[in-house]
């Protein structure tokens, strides 16, 4: 196989693995923002919490990687509920400014607390032996962990798509995103529905955060560093659409990864330039219907 096509495949494949992290973390944010219109800049905190949950479970309690991921996701989902109830709920009707500031405040507090507890240095993670090294797929070999990421990401996407499109709860969520008032007046308990999706979204973020440690690294600045990225995925995809978030994560993940690979000094230029162009042309995002 030629050198060039090898490089292209590598870029796309790594971008794909990166995109899956973006998707898993952002999808909950997209649905909750679509439901309540809350600009949640603090969503990355739940991903960061997931990462620390997983690494602590593994290093302190000796829990294996996969169970630790699941426990972390459930744990963060439960912990997120009081946050929604006491901090977010009072601001659903407030303006964006208040919401943004509350979230920046939460991110600062989280970052300081995590630094205090876990120290400022990046935390390493030891992925199981089975996920290390390379896997030969016949025409060439790929890093096993990234292959695992892509598999998890695709199955999560399929699962979420099924839940969203084919189940009763999914239908209710879609109804509430489309028109909250109308959904409420036909008897859907939107507040309860929202708490449920909020917890689910936080749990997914935690899962993504746990999976991301090996690729993006984990330090108390995680939430600040990636705060903008998750929001961009949601804005570009369109609020409250699973498909939009998935496509946006793919586009931005592959472009960001490719840009950094081909033009390292340019850094994050591409991803923001693409974001600006897409939002100028489609203000409600690729698949969004209302702003």
């Amino acid at each position: 196989m030629s050198q060039l096509s090898n490089i292209i495949i590598s870029i796309i494949f790594d971008g794909l693995a990166y995109a899956m992290i973006l998707f898993i973390i952002s999808v909950g944010l997209s649905v909750t923002m679509g439901l309540m219109g809350f600009v949640n800049l603090a969503h990355g905190v739940f991903a960061m919490a997931g990462g620390y949950f997983v690494t602590s479970l593994m290093s302190v309690a000796g829990v294996p990687f996969i169970p630790a991921l699941l426990i972390g996701a459930v744990g963060v989902a439960v912990v997120s509920l009081p946050f929604e109830r006491f901090l977010y709920a009072p601001l659903y009707k407030a303006g964006e400014l208040d919401q943004v500031l509350l979230c920046i405040g939460l991110v600062f507090m989280a970052s300081a607390s995590f630094t205090y507890v876990f120290g400022p240095d990046p935390v390493p993670i030891k992925v199981p032996d089975g996920l290390r090294g390379q896997v030969d797929l016949g025409f060439r070999s790929f890093p096993a962990y990234r292959l695992f990421m892509v598999a998890v990401g695709l199955s999560m996407a399929a699962g979420i798509w099924y839940g969203f499109e084919k189940t009763l709860i999914g239908a209710r969520v879609r109804a509430a995103v489309d028109n909250r008032m109308m959904a409420q007046s036909v008897g859907i308990d939107v507040d309860r529905l929202f708490r449920f999706t909020f917890a689910l979204g936080s749990g997914l973020a935690a899962l993504g955060g746990g999976l991301a440690v090996d690729i993006l690294g984990l330090s108390p600045s995680f939430a600040i560093q990636y705060l903008v990225l998750f929001l961009i995925v949601v804005a570009v995809g369109g609020l409250g659409t699973i498909k939009g978030t998935f496509v946006a994560a793919l586009v931005l993940g592959v472009i960001d990864n490719g840009g950094k690979y081909l033009w390292p000094e340019g850094g994050a230029f591409f991803i923001y330039a693409v974001t600006i162009v897409i939002l100028l042309l489609k203000p409600t995002g690729l698949y969004g219907r209302h702003g």
Binding site: V100, L231, I232, L279, T284, G291
Partner: peptide
């Protein structure tokens, strides 16, 4: 407006 403006 709104989120789009914020992101832009």
């Amino acid at each position: 407006h709104g989120l789009t403006l914020l992101m832009l």
